[in-house]
């Protein structure tokens, strides 16, 4: 039965094609049409979305936003710490450079060190929201870009990651996702409204956290 049906269908199509005069076909509009920007496009290709503003977070910096923007940073051995507040749909990103604030003295940037960045960022995200916050964290980075760097152990990236995890534990913030280690640098795009983190490696690989 199904084969017969298929056959008849094919025949019908052939007939209709033969009946149509080529000259009467409507002209195809070759001009480029303006298509509406799809929101899904910005998740898979963060660079192709002009609709969403990108805010760059520099080294050892911290930025908190409650507008629909994307926080962008690039990390190698450093760790990008994203804290998202799902109740108020806001969040912040900190570029963590070093594991412990005991290394340097009188530093004015709390976001530079893992043990001070987590409480500072969590406090700032809590302050920006109106309702009671519901925090979750995502981290990425801690790669080992240099094979052997004299004067710096090979595990500085992993030390950073461990310090951030310990600080998150101490501050009772849930670690929702992580992408750490490896030997390639990462570009991190954190959508503050949705809480989605897109990690793009320098070799072109893309991961969604």
């Amino acid at each position: 039965m199904p084969t017969n049906l298929l056959d008849s269908h094919d025949v019908r199509i052939e007939k209709t094609v033969s009946l149509v005069n080529i000259m009467e076909l409507p002209k195809l509009d070759t001009r480029p049409t303006l298509r509406p920007q799809r929101t899904t496009a910005c998740i898979t290709h963060p660079q192709l979305s002009p609709a969403v503003n990108e805010v760059r977070v520099g080294m050892a910096e911290m930025k908190i936003e409650n507008k629909p923007v994307e926080l962008v940073t690039s990390v190698g051995s450093c760790v990008a710490l994203c804290i998202y507040d799902s109740a108020n749909r806001c969040g912040g990103l900190a570029h963590v450079m070093l594991p412990h604030s005991s290394i340097a003295s009188n530093d004015s940037l709390p976001s530079k060190f893992a043990d001070t960045a987590v409480p500072a960022l969590a406090k700032a995200v809590r302050e920006i929201g109106r309702q009671e916050a519901c925090l979750s964290a995502k981290i990425a980075g801690g790669a080992n870009v240099f094979l052997n760097l004299k004067g710096l152990g090979p595990a500085i990236g992993l030390k950073n990651v461990e310090a951030v995890k310990a600080a998150l534990n101490a501050n009772k913030i849930w670690l929702a996702a992580e992408d750490v280690g490896g030997s390639y640098g990462r570009r991190i795009v954190f959508n503050v409204k949705t809480g989605v983190v897109v990690v793009r490696f320098s070799n072109g690989e893309i991961k969604k956290l």
Binding site: S74, G76, I103, F146, S202
Partner: peptide, 27 residues
């Protein structure tokens, strides 16, 4: 000098490691 080492990566992630080292030494 040590033998050369070639790294192909994004600019910021290469600088990251070196700057961590600098930050460990001094401000």
């Amino acid at each position: 000098s040590t033998p050369p080492q070639l790294i192909i990566d994004s600019f910021d992630s290469i600088m990251d490691g070196l700057l961590i080292k600098q930050a460990l030494c001094s401000e």
